[in-house]
Design a protein around this nucleic acid. Structure first.
Lengths: 238, 238
DNA sequence: AAAGTGTCGACTGTCGACACTTTTGCGTTG
DNA sequence: CAACGCAAAAGTGTCGACAGTCGACACTTT
């Protein structure tokens, strides 16, 4: 019996370690707004609630801290990260920078299949715009941009995009609703796709800059008007 | 480790952040090549050696994992990250992307003091080229580039640069010696500084692209010729 | 002899415990 | 009545311990 030589892709019963599970759970809670910015994430409470010890919770906290979702203040614990308006500006500025690059790289190695995948995702975006589901809309928008980064072929860039995106989603989630008409948002991706298809790098960069700059301005305006959010509790005394 | 029992600490370091200390120690060991790529970082051994328990060592490991210095394999522990040549390419590609942007931002808000600081750091680079100290040369080169990122005003970009740099330093440290004539390396920064001073954004981008591309080619060549380094121990079969 | 199996040792993942720090609650005082 | 301050409560930082898992090595089987 030669069963071992050709293992059909068994599901690989990796009993997902606690740390990943807890981290995912916390991430969801943060993005969903269940844990608002500035909220304390008490490891003891989380551990009790989940029925695990504090060790894996702490490690999950470290993980999310490195992703920019939490901040750790010594002897005081983890808090959901708050973002000053300037920090959001920094994030968008950086995001534009790397997505411009990603789009150029993607255009250079674009295959018919790749183009079809982008087109398909954009169609999904239109479909989502029809129904009224802001969270889903944000999700599909994110996926379109992620696809570009994925198709760039630069793994590290994709990882960076994921980090920036998860951080930005705290803010987007905070805003709660879409910052613009859903259908219009889908439409603004058209010139971007066309530019990538054209292969004209200057045009691609201009397109991406315009597209993301638009989103940036929308977010920046809302962030500055709506929440008079207090900053992170600091430890530096007078 | 009852730090409280030793109220008069000789080193002025705090008593409360074992994790940071351990992380810094491990980082140094990795960059110095004491822990070569692929080496196992046994938490029990580290803990014994430092006289602390395994908990803070584990957390430091998570920290370094998020910085790309270590990889964690479930049930097997931490290993110093190995970089396939393509991953180094990704790193440099991304680095060029963000440093181009940083240089443009810096040029836009360049003050006389800022320009002086860049000039000074470049002079230091020349001085270091005179003595023969490869590690120091790499350090000062790194500082010049970091200064540009710092002066860009985008904090998040600076953090990203630090992450990329520490990751690249594993590789640079691995190569061990400079990949080119020290004095020439210092000189190649001149056009970059001049471009920033000029404020011509296209020129700045071109300069940076050329300058870093040069370093990239040097590193890529050495990495591909010298070490027939085996990849990270994985757990997923073919 | 090659491949597969069983056992041993080492190490990780997780836990509960303890000391110290921060926060909270409440009584005291100006 | 508000500000202050002290003491209890809650929570974090770290530790040592135990169980489960992985890798190595010798042993059995084909």
């Amino acid at each position: 019996m030669r069963l071992a030589s050709k293992p059909v892709g068994l599901p690989a019963v990796t009993s997902q370690d606690l740390v990943s599970q807890i981290a995912a759970m916390l991430t969801d809670a943060i993005i969903a707004g269940h844990l608002p910015p500035g909220a304390k994430v008490a490891e003891a409470a989380i551990a009790r609630e989940l029925g695990v010890s504090r060790a894996p919770v702490r490690e999950a906290g470290r993980l999310l801290e490195s992703q920019g979702l939490l901040v750790a203040i010594p002897s005081r614990g983890f808090f959901v990260r708050t973002h000053a308006p300037e920090e959001i500006d920094d994030l968008y500025d950086l995001r534009i920078c790397i997505e411009k690059h990603a789009a150029v790289l993607t255009a250079r190695r674009l295959t018919p299949e790749g183009h079809a995948a982008l087109r398909r995702q954009l169609d999904v975006l239109y479909e989502t715009a029809a129904i009224n589901d802001p969270a889903r809309q944000v999700e599909e928008d994110y996926r379109f941009h992620r696809l570009i980064c994925e198709m760039s072929g630069n793994r590290r860039l994709l990882k960076l995009f994921d980090d920036l995106a998860s951080e930005l989603r705290i803010v987007i989630g905070l805003i709660g609703r879409l910052y613009d008409d859903p259908h219009r948002i889908a439409e603004t991706h058209e010139p971007l796709l066309a530019a990538i298809e054209s292969g004209d790098e200057a045009r691609i960069q201009g397109s991406m800059e315009y597209h993301l700059g638009d989103a940036w301005r929308g977010v920046a305006r809302l962030v500055r008007t709506l929440p008079p959010e207090q900053s992170q509790p600091t430890e530096t005394g007078p």
